[in-house]
Simulated scan of single mutants.
Amino acid sequence: MSFLRNPDNRRVMAAKAWVAEALCSPAMGRAVTRATGGVVRVKGLRIDTRSAALDPGVPAALLFRIYEGAELRLLEAHVEPSACVVELGTSLGVVGSAAARALEPGARYVGVEANPALVGLALRNVRANAPQVAADVLHGAIDYSRAAGDTTAFRSEGSHLASALGEGPGFVAPVVRLGDLLREQGVGDYTLLMDIEGAEAGLLERDSAALEWCRQMIVEFHDTTFAGRAWSRAELAARVDDLGFRRVAEYGSVVVYAR
């Protein structure tokens, strides 16, 4: 029944979405928190979810391998050793923990997270799961529509996973550019993890030189608009192809690239 594993099968994906919503309800999340003490095991990781900033359904999504499931599946099969992992859009550090765990002692992990309430949680999770790595998580947002040194405002839409650019109740983050980050942190060869809700279009258009030393990339593409132009996920993926990367594997909107 291989069609059940096809992420492009609309009926299957609709059914999965319905099941996921039921499994990841706030009530189920609170039950998982009571059972686990808030530290959920997933694919050999121990992920601390004890934060009021998280949607209450997140612990359940982790337990049932729905949260970042595609990224974790692809990482497990394809992550390669590198001197440094750079993650844009760290969230609570699940994907970063999985990638950092595969690094050699003395390697580095640098994450960037826009939501200030999640920066400390992400850092604790990465350090707990990859103690052999020098880890840091910076507060910032990848944004090429504003000048470096500016801030970007996010409005909350009911969940830490559902925030969007725009004024309103939420949080602000300093603008970060990948190229600037690499220079400031002294990063050479690196693996890039990227889930930044469409901001990848600006990076690919304005900062593609920062990918020169990127040896592996695991990215979730999003349909988006940048500088007045609409970008589809397929167009973004084709742009990465044009930059000299080859596709190693993909699942849904998540793609693994290598040089």
Rank of each mutant, 00 (worst) to 15 (best):
95 V>P: 00
167 E>S: 13
178 L>M: 11
143 D>G: 03
178 L>F: 06
23 L>T: 07
208 S>Y: 06
33 T>Y: 01
3 F>C: 09
36 T>H: 03
256 V>G: 04
233 R>W: 03
230 A>I: 08
46 R>M: 11
216 Q>C: 03
77 A>H: 12
115 N>H: 14
133 V>H: 12
38 G>H: 05
140 G>R: 08
257 Y>W: 15
101 R>C: 03
237 A>P: 01
208 S>M: 02
64 F>Q: 03
172 V>K: 13
125 N>D: 06
9 N>K: 08
128 A>Y: 06
25 S>Q: 07
106 G>C: 02
147 A>H: 12
215 R>G: 13
28 M>W: 11
147 A>T: 08
252 G>R: 12
135 A>H: 07
233 R>E: 14
225 T>P: 00
183 R>Y: 03
175 V>R: 09
247 R>K: 15
90 T>C: 14
118 L>T: 06
20 A>D: 14
5 R>H: 14
39 V>G: 06
120 G>E: 14
246 R>Q: 11
247 R>T: 14
52 A>K: 14
55 D>A: 13
78 H>A: 03
78 H>R: 10
20 A>S: 15
182 L>K: 01
30 R>Q: 08
204 L>T: 06
154 F>P: 01
186 G>L: 03
90 T>L: 06
16 K>W: 06
127 R>I: 00
138 L>G: 04
145 S>A: 15
36 T>Q: 04
166 G>F: 10
114 A>G: 08
178 L>S: 07
184 E>C: 05
158 G>E: 02
143 D>H: 08
106 G>Y: 05
140 G>H: 07
147 A>Q: 11
39 V>I: 15
109 Y>I: 04
198 G>P: 03
199 A>C: 14
65 R>A: 15
112 V>D: 00
171 F>M: 01
67 Y>K: 13
11 R>G: 13
210 A>D: 07
223 D>M: 04
19 V>N: 02
131 P>I: 01
4 L>S: 10
180 D>G: 05
205 E>K: 12
33 T>A: 11
143 D>Y: 01
16 K>E: 02
243 L>F: 09
158 G>R: 07
57 G>E: 06
84 C>P: 07
149 G>L: 13
129 N>R: 10
214 C>T: 11
112 V>K: 04
142 I>H: 02
10 R>D: 09
219 V>F: 03
16 K>C: 04
166 G>R: 00
3 F>D: 14
225 T>M: 09
25 S>Y: 13
33 T>I: 01
168 G>F: 12
2 S>F: 07
40 V>D: 00
231 W>T: 02
244 G>R: 12
245 F>G: 06
112 V>L: 11
79 V>N: 05
72 L>R: 14
193 L>Q: 08
105 P>K: 12
168 G>I: 02
40 V>P: 04
57 G>M: 02
98 A>M: 13
244 G>V: 12
98 A>F: 02
85 V>A: 05
90 T>I: 08
49 T>R: 05
11 R>H: 14
15 A>G: 13
62 L>Q: 02
209 A>E: 15
38 G>F: 04
94 V>G: 02
85 V>M: 01
119 V>L: 11
